[in-house]
Design a protein around this nucleic acid. Sequence first.
DNA 1: AACAAGAGTGACAAATATGTCACGAATGGC
DNA 2: GCCATTCGTGACATATTTGTCACTCTTGTT
Lengths: 235, 235
Amino acid sequence: MSDKPHILVVDDEEDIRELVCMNLRRAGYAVTEAMDGLQAIAEVKLKKPDVMILDVMMPECDGLNVCRQVRANPETADIPIIMLTAKGQTQDRIEGLERGADDYLTKPFSPKELVLRVHSLLRRASTTLIISDLKEGPFHFDMRAVKLKVNGEPIDLTLLEFKLIQLLASKKGEVIERDTILREVWGYTDQVRTRTLDTHMKRLREKLAEYSDWVQTARGFGYVFKAPEVASCAD
Amino acid sequence: MSDKPHILVVDDEEDIRELVCMNLRRAGYAVTEAMDGLQAIAEVKLKKPDVMILDVMMPECDGLNVCRQVRANPETADIPIIMLTAKGQTQDRIEGLERGADDYLTKPFSPKELVLRVHSLLRRASTTLIISDLKEGPFHFDMRAVKLKVNGEPIDLTLLEFKLIQLLASKKGEVIERDTILREVWGYTDQVRTRTLDTHMKRLREKLAEYSDWVQTARGFGYVFKAPEVASCAD
DNA sequence: AACAAGAGTGACAAATATGTCACGAATGGC
DNA sequence: GCCATTCGTGACATATTTGTCACTCTTGTT
């Protein structure tokens, strides 16, 4: 990540695009331009921007389409998006918000307001890039205190145990291989024959009590954090 | 923290307030009402909301004032705020954004749009609740791995040591009192006569080696993390 | 069903983290 | 300068965490 936040501006109208870019550059941001939705998607893949400013009305691949595609990709799903809409198009605004846009501005808009909105989105993004919590199902990880609560009840974990379940929970639904766990949590760099993971997993599950079935074994692969299956038979 | 996100709605106009509350409750949110700025501030202290919806035009303590006060308090600075403005008051909108509001809606507004905006702010708040790093001077804290690097060199810290210096670094330049440190890092809830902090501080400083002068004693108060003073004499 | 491999388990020992204590050093007020 | 208070320090003991081992149980393949 470079010093200056990077903004991607997408609009087929050249004069609007130039006006926006000029004001953002003057405000100290690094700016990339795209003149249509397809180019925008290509640019996002090339270099993930810190904020996207996206016109709704564009030929071929409109802003709503771009927004949907950006949100559908986990690598780019968290990019803050400001939609530019035509005056009076309330439906566009609502649909944009439903598609995952963070904000909108109605043409014609004040460049100062646009800059302030970019600033606001970045401030929120940057102030949350400090220490924060992770929540998954009933699990609540306080990363600053290195403490776990499950359904509001504190669980007393060692550092290794905390790291272990936090790694799994942060990739909910994905099977994490044993070697990956040993590397991420234990810092092992080579393949080692060890049963320490098994031992710690046992200890962790004991501490989790009735929630231990959130941590499931993928035999021959590793472990996965996911909601337990609901019993489907009469027992 | 309960299951439902908690929204605080602040507006002196009762019909607007009731309309907003009804729509938010229907959308599944827990809602608290305040009819003026002073009540809003009291409510925020009582129970920190997940989002605040704040009318600008209110007697005595207007929305901009509330916004400023909420942002000035570190405990509440990160609450997402939506400002409600009168039609045509562009200056209010810009000032609101400058004061730290995250969003605004102009009266009269579609209740559906309001709900979507709340949803959008909460989605962003929850999706950005990720694990990240803290950097201060040459210090780089990896909160996920619970590891510290200073000027690129890993420093081998115990969990307590990590928490201790991370607390200080996250409040760079501020003196943190001993009792506060004991509460935040050790979890002590009462005033205790203990020298354990001194011992751990010694150990931490040993590990920091030439960077130990970033951790400075405020005698009779506590400790402060700040850049060492540059020698001002010829020695 | 038999068998091999993988994971769970209890017990134990080693390693590490943490806290207390007493003495010395440093600081600030009178 | 003197004295009281606070903080730094080294040593030690206790508490906790971590990893290994051997056995048992479970799973998947033939």
